[in-house]
Amino acid sequence: MTEIQMQSNPDEQNNAQGKRWSLIFVWLLVAVLLLVVGLQLWKAQLGVVGVGEVAPKFSLTLFDGEEITPADMEGKVVLVNFWASWCIPCEDEAYELQSAWEYYQGNEEVLFVGVDYSDTNTAALEFLDKFGVTYPNGPDLGTRISQDYRMQGVPETFIIDQEGIIAYVLIGPFQSVEQITTIIDALLGS
């Protein structure tokens, strides 16, 4: 009887150890899952990059093949507009944005950049042609820029001051040219 007990003890110990490791593994897995879900929820509730925050730097390859880099934006008031050809409110503000851009033509301190979000190049170019948009525009490849700006939807516009700080955020379309020029003029100090 004693012999039997002695033989079964290592087995029981192994079983207990196995159980312990299984439990540790399961809890680790649960912890990692919770961490991933938590991070995603935290990111989702952060909202867009807000006024006063440092504007995420980005490079954008334009539809014509040229590239805009952070160096091109340095020391300028930059208007970054996220849009898409399938977005109806984007059509509503296309005229306002283009008019404002024309208003600042010749002013080296102002730069407009259109970031085309989740679109096809054909449709995007048709859109730009339809509304006569001439300021630099390019596709947001891999949606990296919109992710950096934590964009919620199109249209969305960020106006960045000369120091690279977000000075204005608009979720939705601009209603008038003055709405744009008032903000930019204030930043230019004119």
């Binding site: 898409a84 050809s85 399938w86 989740s118 096809t120």
Partner: peptide, 22 residues
């Protein structure tokens, strides 16, 4: 890419039609 959890083959939006054309 813009609607939540809808496969492109059954998505009815204009944007999805563009992607299918692509």
């Amino acid at each position: 890419p813009v609607c939540e959890n809808i496969p492109l083959d059954v998505c009815e939006s204009a944007a999805c039609a563009q992607w299918r054309d692509q």
